[in-house]
Design a protein around this nucleic acid. Structure first.
Lengths: 138, 138
DNA sequence: TTGTACTGTAACAATTATTATTACAGATGA
DNA sequence: TCATCTGTAATAATAATTGTTACAGTACAA
């Protein structure tokens, strides 16, 4: 990936974690991220479908964490926002070339291994731990 | 990253490795990758500046590997084509928010750690080993 | 039961990143 | 001096990402 979705999702979830159960509106969250509320709602919608967040419509609505932050791994968040392999697309090589014909298979293997190395790392920290890095400067 | 540059660079270098020192033209390489020769030359230019490839202009020109493939780590190639951190951009959050003010620092740390996990993995294989996966089906 | 404050979502526009194309000066060898 | 190749720039086309606007629907509260 090369977008800001991971940062956005982690920002949203961190805010919700640190709000200690208080409902936050998408507008308030958008204000903190400095992003359009509709985009935030789009990411919230994704995170809600995946069970990270529960939200409530209507007056006084907003969203809260649906799971304990100690049970949410950063790897979970990574997977929530990443569809495409991060090492990038493979090529569409020339099948008439012996190398071209074989390379995508080997690239795919490599991408899989590399992505595993990455997620293993992200498997080791939780949203709770990430949130604890923040100093409450009020 | 989310582009095909890693795949392109690895494809180029693999071809050069398996050509056993024979000069290859950018057109020939482009044919295997199924990519525009000018784009291939651009990547070759990058790889040349970084010392992976040496090339020769003029009639009969082309390029060859400048280093032993056993000494080229996949991590070297990754670094050659990746400027931007793969976990994506950070946000430009609202400095008026306590969380927003701090998050980029924590994101950067996380990105650095995660990228390290990835490159450590790529540090473990060489271009030579990658090339050995290919069966010479002539 | 009506107003207000939200979510959820779609449609669309704008922006940015990536990839592709074309062109051509300069190098090199036959 | 011709053909073949690199190196590079300028530019166009395409694709991905981000931003905007709009509005139906939900929920609470007066």
């Amino acid at each position: 990936m090369n977008n800001a979705r991971f940062a956005t999702a982690l920002h949203i979830l961190t805010l919700l974690d640190l709000s200690k159960g208080e409902r936050l509106s998408s507008e308030m969250i958008a204000g903190s991220i400095n992003l359009n509320p509709a985009l935030v709602r789009k990411e919230i919608s994704n995170l809600r479908k995946l069970g990270f967040i529960s939200s409530k419509e209507g007056n006084g609505g907003g969203c809260t964490l649906a799971r304990q932050s100690a049970d949410i791994l950063l790897a979970d968040i990574y997977r929530a926002v990443n569809q495409t392999p991060f090492l990038g697309r493979t090529n569409t090589p020339n099948p008439a070339c012996a190398i071209g014909r074989q390379i995508n298979q080997h690239l795919d293997e490599l991408y899989t291994e590399a992505e595993l190395a990455l997620t293993s790392k992200l498997e080791k920290s939780t949203l709770k731990e990430f949130g604890e890095k923040f100093q409450s400067e009020l």
